[in-house]
């Protein structure tokens, strides 16, 4: 394993801050393919950081025991927003900026924009395929899923099917994506899967274990690894959802949401999802029921809600379930 710093700068105290890349090189003179995994663009999304730990641990052992298994190259960027990670915050502290809204900006604009530019350039230079690992924000928890902008479906869907996720959500393009890392890499013809799992500031070990299996499977599928000790377990066949196959239930009132369902639960039309309550007056403001039939793949975790807050997303069983 080779450790390299791809972005480095010093803070006011002189302490160095670095974005580190771990590279597992190919046993061949020319790698069959190069795959990059990165995590922590939002510093509070720790599932991906933990997953990188699991992946590095697995690859180190494989390198020691079966170095010939590396037909290609694997790069792991475990913490690409190191200061936010130390702070446990979504945004890059001090500058209060979202790194995943700065991609594609000219370098001269600011230090974070320059760092994003260097990171993006490094990824472009060393990746034939990339996986950008995210958790949800503090409000929602997500079943392991891959989100694909419709424009890139043809190239990404076959790869996403190899990742052992529960859901693949193909959604339309929106302006907000243009400044994201995933979109910019895909535009640069580096196929990039954007994965969401769990919730920020927590680690869901089962989800991480599931996605580790998916990552190893993807590496074998991509021809980067060819290990005799490859896990033989079946990978999941995910639900592949188009935009009209996702049902969103939102709060009609502000208050506290007390949920009654779990991620992955099946719901039918009219099934109770939870209550919105007014703790000050001791009243139930809304009994939330599902207008859809399907599988819950997003669930409200932060009980504090305003009107319009998303409570659950349901993978619809069919187009008639809306």
């Amino acid at each position: 394993m080779r450790t390299r710093s791809v972005v480095a700068y010093k803070g006011p105290s002189g302490a160095s801050v670095e974005i580190v890349k771990q590279t597992f090189s190919s046993a061949r003179p020319k790698p069959a393919r190069r795959v990059s995994f990165l995590a922590g663009l939002h510093g509070d999304e720790l599932e991906g950081v933990y997953l990188c730990f699991l992946l590095v641990q697995y690859l180190r052992r494989l390198k020691e025991t079966e170095p010939g298994a590396f037909l290609g190259e694997v790069n792991v960027y475990p913490a690409v927003n190191p200061q936010a990670l130390c702070h446990g915050s979504r945004l890059w502290p001090f500058f209060s900026v979202d790194m995943n809204r700065l991609m594609g900006e000219p370098a001269g604009n600011s230090l974070p924009a320059g760092a994003c530019r260097e990171l993006l350039a490094d990824l472009k230079g060393c990746s034939d395929l990339a996986v950008d690992l995210h958790s949800s924000n503090q409000h929602l928890a997500e079943l392991p899923q891959i989100r694909i902008v419709k424009d890139f479906e043809k190239k990404l869907l076959p790869l996403a099917l190899q990742c052992n996720v529960d859901v693949i959500w193909v959604h339309p393009m929106a302006g907000v994506f243009e400044s994201t890392l995933g979109y910019n890499l895909n535009r640069a013809k580096v196929p990039t899967l954007v994965m969401e799992l769990g919730i920020c500031l927590r680690i869901h070990r089962d989800f991480c274990s599931q996605i580790l299996d998916g990552a190893i499977h993807l590496l074998h599928h991509a021809g980067v690894l060819n290990s005799s000790r490859r896990p033989r377990g079946e990978i999941k066949m995910p639900l592949v959802l188009k935009a009209d196959q996702v049902g969103l239930v939102q709060a009609k009132r502000a208050g506290l949401f007390a949920g009654r369902v779990k991620l992955g639960d099946r719901v039918g039309k009219g099934d109770k999802i939870g209550d919105v309550v007014d703790p000050v007056r001791g009243e139930t403001l809304e009994e939330v029921v599902s207008p859809f039939k399907g599988t819950i793949f997003t669930l409200r975790e932060l009980p504090l809600i305003y009107e319009g807050a998303p409570l659950v997303r349901v993978a619809l069983d069919g187009p008639d379930e809306r």
Binding site: L91, D98, N137, H139, Y306, G308, A309
Partner: peptide, 22 residues
Amino acid sequence: RLWSFDNLDLDLAFPGSSCGEL
């Protein structure tokens, strides 16, 4: 500076949505 409930820069959220979050 930011809308703290969502860590959101409000000037990166236009035109918004009539049926979205607050």
